[in-house]
Simulated assay, not measured.
Amino acid sequence: MIEYALLFGLGFLTAAFLVFLISPAVHRRIVWYTENRLKATMPLSPQEVRAQKDMVRALYAAENARTTQDLLREREKSLSLQLRHDALAVDAGRLAADIGELQAQIGEMHVEAAEQRSHLRKDENYISQLKTNLHIAEQSAANKESELTAMRTRLSKLSEQTDGLRIDLAARETEAESLKFRANALRDERDTLRQDVTLLQKRAKDAEQKLTQQQHMVIRLEDKAARESASAAEKENLLARRQQEIAKLKEQLKAANAEIRRINRVLRDAGLTKMAADLPAELTAEDTAASMFDTAAVTAEMGEDVRKRSAALAERLQNAKAVAGRDGAIREEIASIAANMVALTALNEGPSSPIRTLLADAGTKTPNDRVSLADRAAAIIANPVH
């Protein structure tokens, strides 16, 4: 706060000092302007004073002359106004007389106007009656005109309707002729359709007969497939028994191999190597067992394949009613399944099966272009893995 007070005091003193320095110059300037003004306004010589007096006298004389002229003009105006007043008074008397006469005329004219008003009212009443009569006549004329226009429009509509009826009549006649031609054409079409229906009925009867034959064939094939599936089940049971026998043979073979190895050791220990060489080898027996095991596996796989194909054939025979033209494929499938069954039986019976000799004899006896069941079975027996 003290700093602010000191700064304020310092500023105030600085301003006062500046004012103290500038004030003499300002005072001298004011004095100089005042002296110049006084010198310019005050006369400085007697000639100027006399000149000013002469100028004032001249101004007074001019003003006095102007005033006298104005007074003369005002007197002339008042005189002319007096004369005009006298003339206006004479005119006013004359106008008053005229006004009296005019008022008398106005009274007479009022009377005449009243009479004219009465006549005018009568005329207006008559005119109003005429207007009402004219309005009634115009309304009747307008009604008649509207009736006339309505009659004209009705007449035009009737003429248009007659023209339309004539056109419709002509169109109906043409339609009748076209309908006659169409009826004749429809009769011809009916005759042709009857012929087509008779042909279709004949074809339907033939198709029904064929369908019944196909149904009987399907039933026979289903019975045959059922028998084949039953035989396949029996073959599967036989295959299971053979697999059990193979397992037993394997066990016996293992025991025999162990016995052979034991005998070989005993003979080698005894010094009888020649007798040990005459004994059957272990690997040959194992190969025989392996081949028997492979044959059993192949027969099992063939049995499963035959069963699946029999089931698929049964489904195809069920669907054969809806799908026609596939008899050749079905016959081929049945022949293939039968050949597989024959081959499966021959493989299960082994090399001593009489089916092999029968197949060989059938293959030599029936030379034919078509593949027989014996050829199919022989091919499957020769190559069971396919």
Rank of each mutant, 00 (worst) to 15 (best):
A185L: 11
R241G: 01
A258N: 08
L199T: 08
N264H: 14
R190L: 15
I260K: 00
T198S: 00
L200G: 01
A232E: 02
E222G: 07
L211Y: 14
K202R: 04
K254C: 03
N257M: 05
S231N: 07
E228W: 08
K254H: 06
A232K: 00
L253V: 03
T212F: 02
R190F: 13
H216W: 11
A240S: 03
R190E: 05
L199I: 10
T192K: 01
L199W: 08
N264D: 07
D188T: 10
I263D: 00
H216R: 15
S231M: 12
R262G: 09
A233I: 04
H216N: 11
A230C: 04
Q243T: 15
A230Q: 06
R227L: 08
E189M: 10
S229A: 11
N184R: 09
Q252W: 03
Q244N: 09
D191N: 12
S231I: 14
T192Q: 09
A207W: 02
D196G: 02
R241N: 03
L249C: 02
Q195S: 13
D188K: 15
V218P: 01
A233F: 09
Q214V: 10
R190S: 12
L253T: 00
A225G: 05
K205E: 15
N264Y: 12
L193K: 05
A233H: 07
K210A: 15
L211A: 14
L253Q: 01
K248R: 13
D191A: 15
D191F: 13
Q252V: 03
D188V: 08
Q243M: 13
Q201K: 04
D196F: 14
A233V: 04
A232I: 05
D206Q: 12
L186D: 04
R227T: 07
E228K: 04
E236V: 13
D223N: 12
Q215M: 06
Q215Y: 12
I260A: 04
Q195W: 13
A247C: 04
A230D: 00
L239R: 04
R187A: 15
L249A: 04
K250L: 02
E259V: 05
A258C: 03
K235T: 11
E251R: 01
K224T: 07
E189A: 12
S231T: 09
R190A: 14
I246L: 06
D188Q: 10
K248N: 06
E234F: 07
E222D: 08
L221Q: 09
A256C: 08
M217C: 00
T192R: 01
E251A: 02
M217Q: 06
A258I: 05
S231Q: 09
K248A: 07
E234M: 06
E208C: 02
A247K: 03
Q213P: 02
A185M: 08
R265A: 11
A256N: 05
K250Y: 01
R220E: 08
K235S: 12
A207G: 02
K210G: 10
L249V: 01
E222A: 10
A232H: 01
T192P: 00
V197N: 15
I260H: 00
Q244W: 02
L193Y: 06
A207Y: 03
Q195T: 13
L221P: 01
R190V: 14
L249F: 03
K205V: 14
R227A: 10
E234T: 11
L238F: 05
L199P: 00
D206W: 10
H216M: 09
Q215F: 12
I246A: 10
R187H: 13
R242G: 02
A225F: 11
